[in-house]
Amino acid sequence: MAFTDEQLERYSRHIILKEVGVKGQKKLMAGKVLIIGAGGLGAPAAMYLAAAGVGTIGIADADVVDLSNLQRQVIHTTDDLGKPKVQSAAETMKAINPDVNVVTYEDFIAANNIADIIKDYDFVLDGTDNFPAKFLINDACVQAGIPFCHAGIIRFRGQLMTWVPGEGPCYRCVFKEPPPKDAVPTCKQAGVIGAMAGVIGCLQAMEAVKFLTGAGELLTGKLLTYDALTNTIRTVNIPEDPDCAVCSDHPTITELIDYEQAACDGLSKDDVAEAAAE
């Protein structure tokens, strides 16, 4: 596969890099990344991965664009209000880079569909904002052996980690079980700075780029945390749990689980759906 002159120019800043080069750009163009959630985290990740020329980008979200999303979900614009998020996201990605093959899944990710959706991808980004979805994505990716990057944001804080088979702990090694319902506020209840979604979503895109090109080190065995108020970025080593319920050699979780969603007081069904797709 030879580059066209237009591709040479579009990707010139990648190709110049010793760590990427022609081979790395070809790996990006052959790469398949699934982004679960076309919200705050998924928006910048999808835009940068499309711009980078990632060959196939899947995007999953059941929600439509709401006015309250636009403070941080920069892939959607005011003109997109009421539109399915996956459609709006796909339009923006195609506008940035028509070469990218975008696959949309206008659906809630659940125990009964996730395995079928993730199976075609090289790398998965968790851009959801609720614990049931995060544990589901972890368990499904571990069971299928598909590398993924977890992230979460709230208020002025964010975190992320990457899991690759055989290279360190999974999300469940570290966090075990979802917290009790309503013990932890969603970002709808607690608030979040829009730029935090940008920072952490971009770090997720960076993990995908490093994974696909093989450049540098991934955040495997490490949890990166960012506190914007104190300008603190920490990378904490996290150990594997030899008795992990899902990734150890004697797992006790062998079927996927749909944990109960936090029942937010006063939230409609649509509101809960939105929270699930952050």
Partner: peptide
């Protein structure tokens, strides 16, 4: 520039 170097780099990588 920078396509000058890019084209040279692409050629040498082959």
């Amino acid at each position: 520039c920078p396509v000058t170097f890019v084209k040279a780099k692409v050629a040498i990588e082959e």
